[in-house]
Simulated assay, not measured.
Amino acid sequence: MTSKIIYNTDWAKENISMPELLRWFGHEPVRSSQRGNEYWYISPFRYEKEPSFHTSYLGGKWIWNDFGRGDVQGNGTVIGFMQLHENVDVKGALQLLKNMFPNRGQAVSLEALRLMPLFKNVELIEPNIFSSEGSERLVIQNIKEGIQNRALIGYLAGDRKIDHKLAKRYLRTIQYENTETGQRYHTLGFVNESGDYECRDKYFKGILKSPSATDRKAAKDISYIPGNDQSRVAVFEGFMDFLTVLTIKKTEVLPVDVIVLNMVNMRKRALDFIRSFTYEQIYTFFDNDRAGEKTTQLFAEELGDRVLPQNHLYRGFKDYNHYLQKGYF
């Protein structure tokens, strides 16, 4: 009989490593120790050129310190990182981690295996980035156009500072069920090119498979919104940044084409998609962190001087939505 996983702070400490959590958000180490238990990163919390974010495996757990901030939230734990990165409390951090790593605790992670001498020279296969871990147990029950739930409106307008009246054109209210527990929840859905839904609310961040897709897993993909002016395209890292621009400009539509990566690992998919058009100008709105910087650089290398980075508009902030949340417009 399989024992039930208890999702608490001990579960997070024992089953989730800082390197894999940072990789989930698109951050890769700048340098690491030979033993593989110490890493330096460009800080996930601001723009910088020299790495000041440090994480190491000490005393049976991963800890971190952001020396550029001069302080640490949550004593540098996985939970503390999620609190600071996602602006949630301990309960919210645990709920997000539970949805990001739902089956963790039932098996040894790849990160842990790689640290074991037995597996030092063995090639370990990474999970498919197009599928969401554990997403098969989360099943969509109902989809409604617009935003039909007060809690979701509160999340958009209160936490994200997004004008929900402008955003409703692009979002769906999704009711889904956890088939293991029978519990049902509501979340915001943003459709991608595979027909599945990139979902977000205060306690959930993931992807849910379209009810019409019965023969495959949920597919991570970009989203495309055509505009009237197809000589130009705006490329966003996440859909909250796209909705931020609508809120700042006080408009329901942008005149140009829009592409949302939905995940920095979709950058090559986005590049291939862009090459199928003849865009004269490509505006990029990527995060002010190491992953965003690398993505901007890749776009410039692949697409040349047509690429016009816009991250200077929110310099000093992680992304455009963070800038909006702080009221700097």
Rank of each mutant, 00 (worst) to 15 (best):
Y203I: 02
D201F: 05
K202Y: 12
V258L: 09
P255S: 10
Q230T: 14
Y203F: 14
G227D: 09
D241R: 01
T214K: 15
V233R: 03
V233A: 00
G238E: 09
A213F: 15
I222Q: 09
K205T: 07
L261A: 08
A213T: 07
S231G: 15
S231L: 14
F204R: 10
D201A: 11
Y224F: 15
Q230K: 15
V253F: 12
N262K: 02
E237Q: 11
F204Q: 08
F236A: 00
P211S: 06
F239G: 02
F204M: 13
A234C: 13
F204Y: 06
I225K: 09
K205A: 01
L243A: 01
R232L: 06
D201H: 02
F242Y: 06
V245S: 03
S210T: 07
K250D: 13
L254E: 03
K205Q: 02
Y203R: 14
E237D: 11
M263G: 13
A218T: 07
V245T: 11
Y224W: 06
I222R: 07
S210I: 03
G206K: 06
N228F: 10
D201W: 06
S223N: 04
G206E: 11
K249I: 04
M263S: 13
N262R: 04
R216S: 15
P255W: 05
P226R: 09
A218W: 12
D201P: 02
K250V: 04
F239H: 00
P255A: 08
V264R: 00
L254S: 00
F242L: 05
L254M: 06
T247G: 00
D241F: 01
G227F: 02
L254H: 05
Q230E: 15
S231H: 15
I259S: 09
S223Y: 13
I259P: 01
D241V: 02
K202M: 08
G238N: 04
V253C: 00
S231K: 15
G206F: 05
M240G: 03
D215L: 14
I225N: 05
E252I: 11
T251P: 04
R216T: 07
Y203S: 13
D241Q: 04
V233Y: 00
L254Y: 06
V264W: 05
G227P: 01
D215R: 13
M240D: 01
M240V: 04
L261D: 04
I259Q: 04
K217Q: 14
R232W: 01
E237C: 08
T247A: 01
P226Q: 12
S223P: 07
G238I: 10
N228I: 15
K202P: 01
E252P: 03
L254C: 07
M263R: 10
Y203K: 12
K205V: 02
Q230D: 15
K209Y: 07
F239S: 00
M263Q: 14
G227T: 13
D215V: 08
K250A: 15
F236M: 03
G238L: 06
S212Y: 14
S210N: 10
F239T: 05
A213Y: 14
A234I: 02
I207T: 10
K250G: 02
T214Y: 08
T251L: 04
S223E: 01
K205S: 00
V258R: 04
A219N: 09
I225G: 04
V260M: 05
V253P: 02
K249G: 06
T214H: 10
L208D: 00
Y224T: 02
T247M: 03
L246Y: 01
G227H: 05
